[in-house]
Each structure stands twice: as C-alpha cells, then as structure tokens.
C-alpha cells in the first residue's frame, strides 16, 4: 500500500518534471498548433521556420536572381527583429509617413492609371515612372503580398517598401538589369537598412568583371552616399508627387542623379563594335 502510494507520488513528480512549465506550455507553436493569422494572407512562422525560410530563399535567389518571390520571402524572413520596426517607427514619427500609414495606399495599376501618367508633362515624377515602366516592360502589379510579418502595420510597411521600389528605379533612372538592380538595392540598403537589400548585394559575384569594377567605382559609392544622405524613401507620398518635377523632388529628397547606366553600356557596346569592325577591317 505504502509502496504504491510512493510509486504514485514519484510518477506524479516525474510527470510534473517532464511537463513544460505553464508559461512555455502556452507558447508551444508547432505544425499541429498554429496561431490565427493577424491579417488576411498572414502566415505565422516560428523561429525555426523563419530561419529555414531565410536561408532557403537566400540561396534560391542567388541561383536565380529573377525569382522575385524568393527575394520577397528573404526580405520578410530577415526583417524582424528591429529592421522593419525601425522603418515603421521612422514613418510614425514623420508627418507624411504617418499619413501614409493612416491611409494605407496601395500602388497597383488600378490605383494608378498609367494612361493618365503618360499624359503628364515631361519630367514629372509620374511621367518618369510611366516611362520607366514602359521601357522596362513591367507593371505595378508584379509585387507579391506580404505574408510572413506578424504585425499588420509592419506588414504594410514592408508592402509599401516593395511597391515604392519601382519609384526609386524611376527617379534614379536605373534599369532592372542586374547591374541597375544592384545599384538600387545598395541605395535602398543605405536608406532603409533592410537586411534583404544588403544580402542582395551578394549578387555582385554574378557581375562581369567590367560591370563589377563599375559598381565599385561608380554606382556603389553613389548608392551609399545618396542612400544615407536622402530622406527615408518610405516617407514620400509618391501618389501625391506624381505631378512634381522629378528634379525638384530629387533636390528635396537629397538624391543626385547617377550616371545613366543604359547610355554608358550602349556607348561601351558601340565602342566595342567599332573596335571589332576596325580589327576586322585591318585583317
């Protein structure tokens, strides 16, 4: 009798020992026990899943830099802690940024009429944006929705960053070929400090030696200097700046126009072709 009692007691003690403490028990988060999404489309992740997503998408996007979905996941998986919170705080404490957070505008082909933008006067931000979209053959709708950031407002900040990315291309005139994309990413890294933008710079290894040299000598320094000097790009209400003169906006934000990448490449290409023709002529 006594022995069964003591056995029972040891069993209970053992059970108590093996059981997780109550605060941990509540927090357990596994494949079987997932929390509710905080906003439509939200996918809650735990620490390990987030880490795996970060590493997986980092390698995936390095192998195929045109997988924008992987780049997007990488951005979301590495934005917390601190980085996206910092951006959100920067927006909250800026009058315009705060207004953006309140209105939560989305940039899509529905919210922005490209037809109307094309009619705007020469050298306005809207016209430059439309012209840039046309010349690169992209639309504002190619952006993925944010899924892996837990706080709804921080998710919006990430979404907004993704949507204004094209505006940064437009006002700096940098194309979406890898070299131009890297210059923009370096600029964004200096400006937003989002880790994904910095990690994307690893794609430098994919550049040709000539391009890499140009990145380190021209576009890299330009991006760093201007990204740090300029105001937060997220605090610009781009929808309201469509009719602003692009030069004026650049001056207000403190951005210098980088050397025109397409022209440089074209010039070099022409030069090479001329040399080739000359060489062939000699033969």
């Amino acid at each position: 009798m006594a022995s069964t009692l003591s056995a029972q007691r040891t069993g209970a003690a053992l059970h108590k020992l093996l059981r997780l403490p109550p605060p941990l028990r509540q927090r357990t988060f596994s494949v079987l026990n997932r929390p509710q999404p905080n906003y439509p489309g939200h996918v809650p992740l735990n620490f390990i899943e987030r880490g795996a997503l970060a590493i997986g998408s980092a390698f995936g996007s390095l192998i195929d830099p045109y997988r924008h979905d992987l780049i997007a996941s990488l951005g979301e998986a590495t934005a917390k802690p601190y980085f996206v919170t910092r951006l959100r705080h920067a927006m909250i404490s800026h009058p315009t940024g705060r207004r953006i957070l309140r209105d939560k505008p989305r940039i899509t082909s529905k919210s922005l009429s490209l037809e109307k933008l094309r009619q705007l006067p020469e050298n306005t931000v809207g016209r430059a944006y439309a012209a840039w979209l046309d010349s690169e053959g992209v639309t504002p709708d190619t952006r993925d929705p944010v899924r892996y950031i837990d706080d709804p407002e921080e998710a919006y900040v990430m979404q907004r960053y993704r949507e204004i990315h094209d505006f940064i291309h437009a006002i700096t005139g940098l194309p979406i070929i890898i070299e131009g994309e890297l210059a923009v990413k370096a600029f964004e890294f200096a400006n937003t400090v989002l880790p994904m933008t910095g990690l994307s710079l690893a794609a430098i290894v994919r550049l040709k030696p000539m391009e890499r040299k140009r990145f380190f000598e021209v576009y890299g320094p330009w991006a760093m200097a201007n990204g740090l000097k300029a105001e937060e790009m997220l605090n610009v209400y781009w929808e309201e700046e469509l009719e602003t003169d692009a030069d004026e906006l650049r001056a207000r934000l403190g951005i210098e126009m980088p050397p025109n990448l397409r022209e440089i490449r074209k010039k070099l290409r022409d030069q090479k072709r001329a040399e080739k023709i000359a060489r062939e002529g000699e033969k």
């Binding site: 108590k16 020992l17 403490p21 109550p22």
Partner: peptide, 12 residues
C-alpha cells in the same frame, strides 16, 4: 495570476 516560469521550476 498563473505561476511564472521560475515559480514552476522552484516548485520542482
């Protein structure tokens, strides 16, 4: 309220 983590450990 509910016992904390250290409480549960200490009770063991």
């Amino acid at each position: 309220q509910t016992p904390g983590l250290l409480d549960s450990l200490a009770e063991l």
